[in-house]
Design a binder for these strands. Structure first.
Length: 273
DNA sequence: AGTACGCCCTGGCCGC
DNA sequence: TGCGGCCAGGGCGTAC
């Protein structure tokens, strides 16, 4: 499930491969993937013939900055993949390939999404933030301890708060569990009751875990791949996620798993208070 | 305002 | 071998 580190890994790959290239054609075989205010024809017409000036990321979304005033936005959902297909490494389309960006000369980017929870849309540059409606970017310099304090002044439990894209962008189920373990904070704690010392640790853990996962090329528990089709490695270093019943790396207590508003939540009942 | 839940969707897994 | 049932979950809408 692509979260910030996986989206960042894909962004880096796209930057190396298709930045500066001109989009010859966009093919959308599953119109349901196009959401928000745009239609399939909208996306195709506004992207065709444009050059990709840059590739950026906001939260879990990949942004193709076009040389017009448009930005082509991909959100990968649960199982979204962006694969680079070129003559030396032709990746063929399958029934889960819903969108193709063709650059000519046998080079294309394929968007695959098995569960179809992803989406694509195109938006004017000036209305990007308004469309995204996302909160703080956790690896930006301006994501300070002070800003985290403001974000956590709420009675929402800390785990769902971390996962709320309108508050902090890019953290999902895996990394919220990993971050809270690293910070020694129980996922069910109301955010506003966290002490200054705990917030400081949480702030550090957010950067530390996300950067560690980026260095691993992301986390592949099932479907995530980078643009070359390769798995990430962070799944080998999970502290708590999907380790129910296994011993905590710090204290050997079995990792506990509970449901929290329909999402599985893993934590060490002894280390996380 | 917070919380819970159903929905979208497919594939993997379990039990029979 | 196969099939029904259940589960996983990001984000959104709805109900309480």
């Amino acid at each position: 499930m692509p979260e910030l580190p996986e989206a960042e890994t894909i962004r880096k790959g796209l930057n190396k491969t298709v930045k500066g290239k001109r989009i010859k054609e966009v093919t959308i075989s599953l119109p349901n993937m196009v959401r928000r205010f745009t239609s399939k024809q909208d996306v195709v017409n506004r992207a065709r013939g444009k050059t990709i000036a840059n590739i950026k990321r906001r939260g879990k979304s990949i942004l193709f900055i076009l040389d017009s005033s448009d930005i082509l936005v991909f959100r990968l959902g649960m199982t979204g993949q962006m694969l680079w297909s070129h003559p030396q490494s032709p990746v063929s389309k399958d029934k889960h390939t819903h969108i193709t960006i063709d650059f000519g000369g046998g080079e294309r980017i394929l968007f695959r999404d098995i569960r179809q929870f992803g989406e694509v849309y195109i938006t004017r540059r000036e209305s990007l933030e308004e469309t995204l409606k996302m909160g703080a970017e956790p690896l930006n310099k301006n994501f300070t301890l002070k800003s985290l304090k403001q974000i956590t002044s709420s009675s929402v439990k800390i785990k769902p708060l971390l996962m709320d894209q309108k508050r902090i962008a890019g953290i999902g189920n895996i990394y919220s569990d990993e971050i809270l373990f690293e910070a020694g904070i129980h996922p069910f704690r109301p955010a506003y009751l966290l002490k200054d010392k705990e917030l400081k640790k949480l702030h550090w853990a957010i950067g530390s875990i996300l950067n560690e996962a980026i260095a691993c090329g992301g986390d592949t528990i099932s479907d995530y791949r980078n643009i070359l089709g390769e798995s990430g490695r962070y799944q080998n270093f999970h502290r708590v996620y999907q380790r129910e019943g296994e011993p905590c790396h710090k204290c050997n207590t079995p990792i506990k798993r509970l449901k929290l508003s329909g999402r599985s939540c893993h934590f060490c009942p002894r280390c996380q208070k």
